[in-house]
Design a protein around this nucleic acid. Sequence first.
DNA 1: GGGTATGTACGAAGTGTTTCGTAATTAATA
DNA 2: TATTAATTACGAAACACTTCGTACATACCC
Lengths: 125, 125
Amino acid sequence: MPSPLPTEAELSILQVLWQRGPSTVREAHQALETSRAVGYTTVLKLLQIMTEKGLVTRDTAQRAHVYEAAVGEDAVQQHLIHTLLDQAFGGSAKKLILQALSVKESTAEELDEIRALLDEIERRS
Amino acid sequence: MPSPLPTEAELSILQVLWQRGPSTVREAHQALETSRAVGYTTVLKLLQIMTEKGLVTRDTAQRAHVYEAAVGEDAVQQHLIHTLLDQAFGGSAKKLILQALSVKESTAEELDEIRALLDEIERRS
DNA sequence: GGGTATGTACGAAGTGTTTCGTAATTAATA
DNA sequence: TATTAATTACGAAACACTTCGTACATACCC
């Protein structure tokens, strides 16, 4: 069964796990606190909920349980984009990309990388 | 004051208004019903809430009020992308674009259009 | 061993979203 | 004019998300 789309708070925790790797509640809490105020038990509760949803797994061998992301960052990003594509862009990836390019300045290097990928896609087809 | 980000249900209604232009509740309801089951008063209530939020305006001159989108499709799309960029892509438009390209097949024409925009951006800078 | 710190579990409140039923009002029709 | 149809307004239920307080269990330290 496919993992559900993480909520906003869940996503912020996944970001930490993707960056840090397997982490205890305390570690995740400390990492999160640098960007936003959040209580320790709030993080704990979220991780428990995310375990039920299958977004993370946990190792209960030690007293302080260790949580690990059960979904990949790429998979979640693609899921999010797919949803956004359907809900707001009529399924047109082109529109989404054009908007993304206009929203945020990209460096010349980034633009080149995008162009390179375009070339590769076209070559494959 | 800036318009809030529309919720999922609100976005589905905005899509209708962007496509149809100013519409009565009945018209919006009929258009929505083709894609998902939803009650008439549900659409009405949503439009009333959206009026309070400033997402739509309404003309009450006739008995059947006429609702019109008060936010542009482009503006909402950019707002959504900006939020997604922050929440799931660490602010990197490049990453988002690369993922979007891999999520959905684009036609050669679309790829060319994207490439043209890349060129234009690079020329401007 | 007794007290402090650290951890998990659980319940519940607060908020926002979505949905629709019901009542009241206005227009159309027989 | 009386009935029916269409419309708006309003309240509230159902659900999900987020947050945290409290209770309880476990480890550590003097």
